[in-house]
Design a protein around this nucleic acid. Structure first.
Lengths: 349, 349
DNA sequence: CTGAAAGCGCTTACAG
DNA sequence: CTGAAAGCGCTTACAG
């Protein structure tokens, strides 16, 4: 004789409702506290009880309600991504990386761009963090470089992960991108090609990345016996237009540098623009190197040699750091840039 | 004699805790139900009661807890953004637009990229929507064009806003981008310059935008007495590399078209690449037009004439549509593309 | 127009 | 190793 369908199939007894912790407890014949322990991976559950309950959860497709859990925990299952205004590709890559780490974790990614030039922007983030009771936030440059932001988060007890070119904080809260090394590699490469009169277009000194890339480039040149005069170092704004203006300055005089390293690809595109307008051939008469290895680098002609950063990995590490809750020691999260050689450089004429 | 500080300043009685609905009710001398009515903009509250409670809320900086509210409502205050794999700039612009609409609404944006080539991707979105009890989702092309996705969302009772080139659904759930019109404008422009032997590199026919841009271009040409032979219509993949391959095909023969319209800027960059390699001068020997007006368009040389879409507005409209809850009739959300003329076209030689 | 009771689906604090 | 009670901060359903 066929058994009652309700007994046969635990799913049927729910009549299409999503299961709750009470359903699981009832169907498994345990208390909801025991189910809760299993949800939260408590070791205080007998192996066979755990096995039975987990099987049941899988059968009925039970997933705990993040809002109920969040309400009881006084903390949501949301990770915030706080960023200022870098390039679209960078932002999207960080997001993809973060989502790689969050996949199947029960956590979701909430995006929160902001304007760090606004004097109240830290307060805006504070409200966001407190109202949503965020589990943690990822801080992307340049927001990540702002100590006032980190201090505010520490004050309100929100964990954070800072992505920056150098170790600005406790290693447990950092992903370090070592921009100095990437820039040094560019210097070594240009020197190896025989360049001695080189120039650099840097990003704004308000960005730590701009400072690090400059230090790395200048330092490595010095180590190889090449000095970079002040006139060969032009600060620009990490934008195409500012790159055009800087290139005009560097390429105006009689004695031009034979190579220019740009703090990012956008500014390198500005150098290309000026070179095209003024009839300077790249790489024959001028070598150019960028930083970011953005899609633009391979769209330009000739394809731009540039420093690649593993942005997706960076995002993944930052998010993973926020999920780890056991307090176990971890090695420093660190991602290394490396030079991608294309066709924009050759030995000087 | 100074009054007790606790009586004087309602904030002090909280001793640094965030206020809850109970605090507000107690301090205002009303029931929590009345506070709840005010939070939810119920008209069933006397004006002076409302005034008193709202003032108090402002004074103590009270904001209702989204998780508690969500738990009781059985629906979160999260908007999901579902997208497949378009360009980074497009995704970021949609996000910015959505956040414009969500600002100060109490809603947050949760990003959810997915892979529409995966046969189970609709189920993945279903789990996301149900587990998070999303308030609504924005569907970005090409996901937005998938009827199975819309059907699933209707089935589980999740509201959605579809961004697409044509009206695929109830106008209350659509933002229409009219790609056909943008492409028609390109045809008119090229015809007005005197081009008669033109070509088009289209996106993949699995994208509705690719079909619409093709129809718009071909249709407008026909209206002006120009027929586009099959050989002048090459399908590519919306990528730089596929644009290169398509351009090689179009520019190989003796009799080249005098103008090429590309379904997006990435493919137009591919045409530039082939023109540079083969010594074809743009715009002197070949006019080129793109679609998207991405940053790339103005980085290329000569700067690329392209169709601009107001992506940020598109995102704003889609999010705003999800927030509107009063069911009042709205005009169709619609955004018009327009041609941005730069230096990549001139009359044929 | 206003409120007391019960409940949303979980966890914490305590007891055994 | 397991569970009964109380509570997280709101809303719904009902009553007045």
């Amino acid at each position: 004789m066929p058994r009652n369908r309700t007994e046969d199939d635990p799913k049927a007894s729910l009549r299409g409702r999503a299961a709750t912790i009470n359903d699981i407890a009832r169907l498994a014949g345990v208390s909801k506290k025991t189910v809760s322990r299993i949800i939260n991976r408590s070791p205080l559950v007998r192996a066979d009880t755990r096995e039975k309950v987990e099987t049941l959860m899988r059968e009925v497709g039970y997933v705990p309600d993040p809002m109920a859990r969040g309400l009881a925990f006084r903390r949501s299952f949301l990770i915030g991504m706080i960023y200022d205004n870098p390039t679209a590709q960078y932002i999207v890559d960080i997001q993809y990386g973060a989502l790689d780490a969050l996949r199947d974790s029960g956590f979701e990614l909430v995006v929160h761009p902001c304007d760090s030039r606004n004097p109240n922007y830290v307060d805006g983030v504070r409200r966001f963090v407190q109202q949503q009771k965020l589990h943690g936030v990822m801080l992307v440059p340049r927001v990540s470089e702002d100590q006032a932001m980190a201090d505010m988060l520490a004050e309100v007890g929100c964990r954070y992960a800072r992505i920056a070119s150098v170790l600005l904080d406790n290693p447990e809260r950092m992903v370090v991108t070592h921009d100095r090394d990437g820039a040094a590699e560019v210097a070594d490469y240009l020197q190896s090609l025989g360049h001695r009169d080189v120039a650099m277009i840097t990003g704004p000194a308000t960005y730590r990345s701009a400072i690090e890339r400059t230090l790395g480039f200048v330092g490595a040149l010095e180590r190889r016996g090449i000095e970079l005069p002040k006139s060969r170092l032009v600060e620009a704004g990490y934008t195409f237009e500012s790159g055009v203006a800087a290139a005009e300055k560097l390429l105006a005089g009689k004695k031009r540098p034979t190579a220019i390293f740009c703090g990012n690809d956008e500014m390198a595109a500005g150098v290309y623009r000026v070179a095209l307008r003024t009839g300077i051939q790249i790489p024959k008469q001028l070598s150019v190197v960028g930083y970011d290895d953005s899609p633009l680098a391979s769209r330009l002609w000739p394809p731009l040699t540039s420093v690649r950063r593993d942005t997706r990995d960076t995002g993944r590490m930052a998010a993973a750091m926020l999920l780890q809750t056991d307090g176990a020691p971890r090695p420093l999260s660190s991602v290394r840039p490396h030079l991608v050689i294309r066709d924009s450089c050759q030995p000087p004429a």
